[in-house]
């Protein structure tokens, strides 16, 4: 399994059966697909649809949170889907990119929490800036800081959310090829297994953020466990194959 994963990110790229000419176009397409939700939000902002929402903050919070999770699940789906057939081996080239977009939406989600959800008064901060009080945005942040610390201290869904973001941050920071080389493939791979933890914790964050009585995100949870199960099944199959190969070798030797 490890060998397979390593193949994905570095030397293995040559083996991916994809006409190299198509790659830049596909990359552009994947970028576009991943950016679509953000562009949609921007469009809603520009045409006033966002402000026309009864509670724009609530909308943005859920929008960025859900897209983080969905993109994270898409990212986790790449490996199992690719294993279905060698024809899809080239998919692996987009795994890191999709993972970075998960971090991008998670960051938007975190910023939404800090500047829109926690009680930070953006309107006063902006009015202050306009009036030439350049410390006003900072003052607002200082004012809301205790509330955020309080949230972090008392609310486990906030704690889990922050841990998830820190994991994604770590993976994003270590994602460049240079860092991979510096760390060594094995260490890098070990660290990047944390993507599973991020997926799991993102789900936990979602579950715990819901009021009791609200239906839980069962579809997303189911998809997550199916993706994990696919890896376990693959791992077992590989082991069995290796064992039977060994068995037949030793049988031949005998």
């Amino acid at each position: 399994m490890r060998e397979d994963l390593l193949l994905s990110e570095s030397e293995g790229i040559k083996k991916a059966r994809m006409p190299s000419r198509a790659i830049p176009y596909l990359k552009a397409l994947v970028h576009l697909l991943c950016l679509l939700p953000a562009l949609h939000l921007l469009q809603m902002y520009r045409n006033g649809a966002l402000a026309a929402q009864a509670d724009p903050v609530n909308f943005i919070t859920h929008f960025t949170g859900k897209w983080t999770l969905w993109i994270l699940l898409t990212d986790l789906a790449i490996t199992p889907v690719r294993r279905l057939t060698p024809m899809l081996a080239w998919l692996i080239r987009f795994r890191r990119m999709v993972g970075l977009y998960a971090f991008f939406y998670a960051t938007l989600h975190l910023l939404t929490y800090i500047f829109l959800f926690s009680g930070y008064d953006v309107q006063t901060a902006l009015a202050g800036l306009h009036a030439g009080h350049f410390a006003e945005p900072w003052r607002q942040l200082v004012a809301i800081w205790p509330t955020m610390l309080d949230d972090l201290e008392k609310r486990r869904f906030i704690q889990v959310g922050l841990v998830t973001w820190i994991i994604l941050l770590t993976l994003a920071v270590t994602s460049p090829q240079r860092v991979l080389r510096a760390m060594g493939g094995k260490n890098w791979q070990r660290l990047h297994y944390l993507i599973y933890a991020a997926g799991f914790l993102a789900l936990v964050h979602y579950w715990w953020s819901l009021k009791k009585g609200v239906p839980l995100p069962t579809k997303e949870t189911l998809i997550f466990w199916i993706l994990i199960l696919a890896r376990v099944v693959y791992w077992i199959i590989q082991r069995l194959r290796r064992r039977s190969a060994l068995a037949s070798q030793s049988a031949a030797a005998a």
């Binding site: 402000a51 026309a52 903050v57 829109l116 008064d121």
Partner: peptide, 8 residues
């Protein structure tokens, strides 16, 4: 308010 920023 027609701002996306909340009135706190």
């Amino acid at each position: 308010s027609s701002s996306i920023f909340p009135k706190i």
